[in-house]
């Protein structure tokens, strides 16, 4: 029989049962919904560009004016701020639950961490993908605006700049929570060393003592 950590990693039945109770509720329910899940359908993430474009494309009966574009921008920024606040609260709940489980039962705690860490990383990748997309989005939207609503370009730039900063906050929040849980996992379940030992100990204590 292995350690409690082995059981947590290897016992599929136990893991499955845990995920059905605690893990599912935390990770697949409403708490850890991503920005994608939160996005209102009319401004579906990450199709902000398409939303603006639909308002100013020639041919539709009434073209958007600066005021409308400003309203969309405000709504989007408010949505992302709200999403950040929900994420922050969800993370606090998750970390609180993990701490509670840590004091009760290590196998459940470790199995839960495996799932939560993976989910946080997936959400981070979504947010990061959006950040990477912003420069292209800015360029293509500027092109559209030049032809149809040039006076709204400063609003567009300002919105996207604020959006970038807010999504960065969101991604960093997820990243910090993931690292906090990764460290907790190491403390709850330190690994045994496996395979060859590299290097030698000479001078190591002196070096370690020298690091502030």
């Amino acid at each position: 029989m292995g350690s409690v950590c082995d059981q947590a990693v290897l016992d599929r039945n136990e893991k499955s049962s845990i995920l059905k109770t605690v893990g599912d509720r935390l990770c697949n329910g409403s708490i850890m919904s991503t920005m994608l899940d939160f996005a209102p359908p009319e401004f579906g993430f990450p199709d902000l560009a398409a939303s603006y474009k639909s308002l100013i494309t020639p041919g539709i009966e009434q073209r958007a004016d600066v005021y409308q574009i400003e309203q969309i921008s405000k709504r989007w920024l408010s949505f992302v701020r709200d999403s950040n606040s929900k994420t922050s609260s969800a993370i606090a709940k998750i970390i609180g639950t993990c701490e509670l489980l840590y004091n009760r039962t290590i196998p459940i705690f470790v199995a839960l961490l495996e799932t939560v860490i993976a989910r946080l990383q997936k959400d981070e990748e979504l947010a990061f993908g959006f950040l990477e997309h912003i420069p292209d989005m800015t360029r293509s939207m500027e092109e559209i605006f030049k032809e149809n609503c040039e006076e709204a370009i400063p609003i567009l730039k300002n919105t996207l700049s604020q959006l970038e900063s807010l999504v960065s906050d969101h991604a960093e929040m997820l990243r910090d929570a993931r690292w906090q849980l990764m460290l907790r996992r190491v403390k709850a379940c330190p690994s045994k060393g496996v395979g060859p030992i590299h290097g030698d100990a000479a001078g190591m204590d002196e070096f370690l003592a020298s690091i502030p």
């Binding site: 981070e124 990764m182 460290l183 996992r185 100990a201």
Partner: peptide, 30 residues
């Protein structure tokens, strides 16, 4: 990396515990 410092009969030893992305958002900061 996350490294855990321990000791055995020979001396100090780092156990390499984990690794993951960390600095990916820096370039998006003004």
């Amino acid at each position: 990396f996350i490294l855990r410092l321990t000791r055995d009969g020979v001396g100090p030893l780092f156990i390499v515990e984990d690794v993951g992305p960390h600095d990916i958002y820096k370039k998006h900061r003004p």
